[in-house]
Structure formats: structure tokens, C-alpha cells
Amino acid sequence: MMEIKCWGSRGSIPVSGDQYSKYGGDTTCIEVTARTGETIIIDAGTGIRRLGNSLVERGINKYYLLFTHAHWDHIQGIAFFKPLLSNKVKIMIQNREFLGIYTKDLLNKVMEMPFFPISLIDLKADIKFDTALNNKFNIGSVNIQTIPTCHPGGGLGYKFIEDNKSFVFLTDNELGFDHPGGMGFDGYVQFSQKVDLLFHDGEYTKEEYKQKKNWGHSSIQDVLDLALKANVKKLGLFHLNQDRTDEQMDRIIIDCRAALKKKNSSLECFAVPCDMEIHF
């Protein structure tokens, strides 16, 4: 059984306050646990701090870390990932190129003076950077496929397949504008075809998107169209706008469900909150 837990779904910058208590304020971090027990982490946004505390409590000492891209909200929690301070921990980090800089060098840069007082080499964990964690690969019982995302500077989306169940993660992916390296709307429809679960960037309403086109994020209407054309079973809106309150997000989901009902669609739509767990 594949287990998925969201430790952070907020976009751009972490937020706090009572108005964000339902969906949470931490930025992107997803934990995927394979049937065979491997722990796979997607992105090191601020949510990875809480994930790290949980992994310590659970006594889990080996994990794989993948990245969608290297914008601040997807890497800014790495220095506060507590397991890195333990010599019992082994972590395999995907090593790939981000606009001319590889993951190892990128993390070294963000964890050096004057940005941070402790460098990567000061950490006690056994850290390996692995170029094999790219394109198509397996981690335990999970088969993982990737697709370039449509975002300034590029990025990667992921498909996780285990025992005929599938989960696609496409954050920071703009469906209404073609950035260099993107695969186009039809490419993402094909990649997401008939998946059991899709988490997709849903940063903007239709009206907001008119002012933010080419910023690298999707309108919720475009995401619904993608999910319908791909015959997705469940859709989770992700990369929640930094200013979107719980009440506003609830209203958006009500409107989405009403629109789907008018189309006689069985698609299940929700916004992804911090701490959501899905097992299948």
C-alpha cells in the first residue's frame, strides 16, 4: 500500500495565523511511503522541518529526497531537517542540474556563510547525491516517472506507480502559457491519464490568472479541465496562494464541486491541507 502525506502545500512563502489553520502555512513537502517501506520525500520546503521531527520520532533513518525545482519555497527547509544531524541517518538526494548548477552545489550554496552558519559538510548524516534518481527509476516497490513542468527555469513533475495505483504530483506547472521546456496542456493530460490521484498547482482563480499569466502557476479552471480530460479519479489543488484564507479556499472548492456537478462528473475535488494522509 502506497501512503502519501502532505507536510506543506502553501505556495511561495510560509504563512501563519488563525485564518490559515485548516490548510496550513508550510511550503511544499510530500512524504510517500512505499509498500516495501522506503520513505520518499518530494521537496524541502518548510514542511520538511515537521517531517524531520516525525521521522526521528518514528525511528526511520533512511530516505530518498527528490526535487520539483529549486525555488526558495521548495528548498528553504533543508537546513532545519533534524535527521541530518544524526550519524544514524542515510539520505539519497537526487542529483540533477538546475540552470547550470547541480543539486549538491546548490545545497552547498544555500548552507554557507553568510546565509547559514552550518555547512553541508558539517552535518553528521550519510548524504549521497545520486544521478540515477532521474527520468524513470524505481525506489522499492514504487516505479517513478518524470515530466518537465511548465515553469520559469523549468522543473519536474512526478508519477508514482505501485500495484496498479498511481499518484501524479504537478506543482508549479502553468497550463495556460508555454514556458521553455514545458510539455504543453496535452502532454500533461497524457501524463495524468486515468491516475487515481493528482495533486496539481491551483494557485489562481480565473480572474486572478488574468493578471498573473506567465508567472508559472495555473488557474483552477485550467486544472479542472486537465483533470476531466485525463479522467483523473481524485484531484487535490496544491501550491495554495500565500494570501488565500481557509474560508476563501473552502468557497473555491464549493464552486469547483458545483461546476463538476453540472458536468455530471464523478471527479472528487479538494484542496490539499497540511497533514492530509491518503492510503491506497
Results as ranks from 00 to 15, higher is better:
250 D>E: 15
204 Y>A: 07
137 F>V: 12
96 R>T: 12
131 T>A: 13
214 N>D: 15
94 Q>P: 06
45 G>Y: 08
219 S>H: 10
88 K>W: 13
209 Y>V: 04
263 K>M: 12
63 Y>G: 03
169 F>C: 09
150 C>E: 14
92 M>H: 07
227 A>N: 10
144 I>N: 02
64 Y>I: 09
59 G>D: 01
81 F>P: 00
225 D>I: 15
117 P>K: 00
75 I>K: 02
148 P>N: 13
218 S>P: 12
267 L>A: 01
80 F>T: 13
138 N>E: 11
60 I>E: 12
95 N>V: 11
153 G>S: 05
17 G>L: 08
114 P>M: 00
270 F>T: 06
120 L>R: 01
103 T>F: 03
181 G>K: 01
247 E>R: 09
77 G>L: 02
280 F>C: 06
55 L>D: 03
120 L>M: 14
124 K>S: 04
274 C>W: 09
102 Y>W: 14
249 M>W: 07
71 H>Y: 14
205 T>I: 01
120 L>I: 08
251 R>G: 12
210 K>N: 10
221 Q>I: 15
33 T>S: 09
171 T>G: 15
209 Y>D: 05
173 N>F: 07
37 G>A: 04
189 V>E: 11
189 V>N: 11
93 I>Y: 03
37 G>C: 04
150 C>Q: 13
58 R>T: 05
140 G>E: 03
169 F>R: 02
73 D>C: 12
268 E>L: 09
20 Y>R: 09
139 I>E: 01
33 T>P: 01
61 N>L: 03
266 S>V: 03
268 E>H: 02
3 E>I: 12
38 E>Y: 10
208 E>A: 15
109 K>Y: 11
15 V>I: 04
7 W>T: 04
231 N>P: 05
72 W>V: 00
203 E>F: 15
201 D>C: 14
13 I>S: 15
188 Y>P: 02
130 D>F: 10
265 S>T: 15
110 V>L: 09
24 G>L: 11
167 F>G: 07
51 L>E: 01
152 P>N: 06
56 V>D: 00
183 M>V: 15
149 T>E: 02
177 F>V: 05
182 G>P: 02
127 I>W: 00
206 K>A: 03
126 D>C: 08
240 L>D: 06
44 A>Y: 01
213 K>Y: 09
40 I>F: 03
137 F>W: 13
65 L>A: 02
186 D>L: 14
222 D>A: 07
41 I>P: 05
82 K>G: 00
48 I>F: 01
107 L>H: 04
90 K>W: 13
119 S>T: 15
112 E>P: 06
249 M>I: 14
206 K>H: 01
265 S>Q: 10
238 F>C: 12
163 D>V: 05
244 R>E: 08
129 F>T: 07
60 I>L: 13
59 G>E: 00
168 V>N: 06
18 D>H: 05
228 L>H: 08
68 T>R: 08
38 E>I: 06
91 I>D: 02
246 D>A: 14
28 T>A: 11
152 P>S: 02
151 H>Q: 08
227 A>G: 07
240 L>R: 07
160 F>C: 04
132 A>E: 10
121 I>Q: 11
74 H>I: 02
197 L>V: 06
267 L>V: 03
25 G>A: 03
74 H>P: 02
263 K>P: 10
164 N>C: 02
99 L>R: 14
144 I>F: 04
150 C>K: 05
186 D>N: 15
